[in-house]
C-alpha cells in the first residue's frame, strides 16, 4: 500500500508538468485555433535557459526559475510572430506545419549549440518530506508548487482580468471581439506568451528534477500533452489539469506494477478508450460554432 501511494505521489509530480504544458497547448488551440507544434520545444528552451544561468551565473532558484520562464516566453513570442500570426484563420494543418518547421529548427538549433548529449543542470535542493512512509523530495514539492501556481495564475487571468475576458471572447467569436475593439494580435501574443511561459516552467522543473537537459526533451511532453488536451476538451482549465495529473499517476502505476516499457502504451490505451466513449473529451467540446 505504501508503494502504491509512493507511485501515486510520483505520478502527481510528473503529471503536474504534463498538465501545464497541455494547458498551454489547449489555450493556444482554443483561442487561436492553431496547433502549436513548437510549444513543447519552449519547455526545452526553459530547461536550457536554466542550464545556462546555473552554469554561468548563479544556482539561486529565485533567479534560475524566473529567467528560464522568461526565456520560454520570449521564444513563444517569436513563434507567435513567425508562425502563428501568419497562419491564423487558415486550415489547422497549415499552422501545424509552420510551427512544426520551427520545432525542427529549435530542436536542431539546441543540438547545434549544446550538443546531442544531455547537459548537467547543477542545482540542488536538499531534503525530503516523509508522510506515513511516503517520500517526496523538496525538489519535487517545489516543482509541483510551481506547476500549481502556474495553473492558478492562468485560471485567474482567464476568468478575472480584462484581457482574460477578451481572450475568452476571441476564442468564441473573434470577429465580434475585434469589432468591439480587441486587438487580436495582442490576444495572440498574450495567449501564446502565457502558454509558453507555463511550458517553460514545466521544462525547468524537469531539468531540475533530472538534473539535466537535452535538445529533444520537448518530445516527452509533445505527444502526451497533446493527448491530455484532446481528452480533456478545452472548456475547463481544471479539466486539463485533472487529466494531466491523472496521466502522470496512471503512467507511474503501470510502470511500477506492470512494466516500464508498457507505460506509454497503456496510458494511450486508456485515453483512447475514454475518447471513444466521449468523443468530445471528458469535460466538454473543442468544436467551435
Amino acid at each position: 500500500m505504501e508503494q502504491f501511494f509512493q507511485q501515486v505521489v510520483n505520478g502527481v509530480m510528473v503529471g503536474s508538468s504534463y498538465a501545464i504544458v497541455a494547458l498551454g497547448f489547449g489555450l493556444t488551440f482554443s483561442v487561436m485555433h492553431v496547433l502549436n507544434l513548437a510549444h513543447p520545444e519552449t519547455a526545452m528552451v526553459g530547461a536550457f535557459a536554466a542550464f545556462v544561468v546555473a552554469t554561468l551565473f548563479t544556482t539561486n532558484l529565485l533567479v534560475v526559475i524566473p529567467l528560464a520562464v522568461l526565456a520560454a516566453l520570449l521564444a513563444g513570442l517569436l513563434i507567435e510572430r513567425l508562425a502563428i500570426r501568419p497562419t491564423r484563420g487558415r486550415h489547422i494543418l497549415t499552422s501545424f506545419i509552420a510551427t512544426g518547421g520551427l520545432s525542427i529548427v529549435m530542436q536542431n538549433g539546441a543540438q547545434r549549440i549544446f550538443g546531442v548529449d544531455p547537459v548537467r543542470v547543477a542545482v540542488q535542493v536538499e531534503g525530503v518530506q516523509t508522510v506515513g512512509g511516503v517520500i517526496a523530495s523538496n525538489m519535487q514539492l517545489m516543482t509541483f508548487g510551481l506547476a500549481v501556481a502556474m495553473m492558478v495564475g492562468a485560471r485567474y487571468y482567464v476568468r478575472n482580468t480584462r484581457w482574460g475576458r477578451a481572450t475568452r471572447a476571441v476564442s468564441e467569436k473573434h470577429e465580434v471581439a475585434q469589432a468591439l475593439g480587441v486587438d487580436i494580435n495582442r490576444v495572440s501574443q498574450l495567449t501564446v506568451g502565457l502558454s509558453t511561459a507555463m511550458a517553460g516552467a514545466a521544462g525547468v522543473s524537469l531539468a531540475l528534477l533530472h538534473s539535466q537537459a537535452t535538445p529533444f526533451m520537448g518530445a516527452i511532453f509533445g505527444t502526451k500533452s497533446f493527448v491530455c488536451m484532446l481528452v480533456a476538451g478545452n472548456r475547463h482549465i481544471e479539466g486539463i489539469m485533472f487529466v494531466g495529473i491523472l496521466l502522470g499517476v496512471l503512467e507511474a502505476l503501470v510502470a511500477g506494477y506492470i512494466s516500464a516499457s508498457l507505460r506509454d502504451m497503456v496510458a494511450f490505451g486508456i485515453l483512447v478508450l475514454v475518447l471513444y466513449l466521449r468523443p468530445a473529451g471528458i469535460f466538454g467540446s473543442y468544436e467551435h460554432d
Binding site: 486550415h91 518547421g101 529548427v105 547545434r112
Partner: peptide, 22 residues
C-alpha cells in the same frame, strides 16, 4: 551541411513555404 544545420534549414524552409503557399 552538418546534420543539425541542414535540419535547421529544412525546418525554416517548411515554415516559410507553408506560410507563402498555405
Amino acid at each position: 551541411f552538418s546534420a543539425a544545420d541542414r535540419y535547421i534549414l529544412y525546418g525554416a524552409v517548411l515554415t516559410v513555404i507553408i506560410i507563402v503557399r498555405p
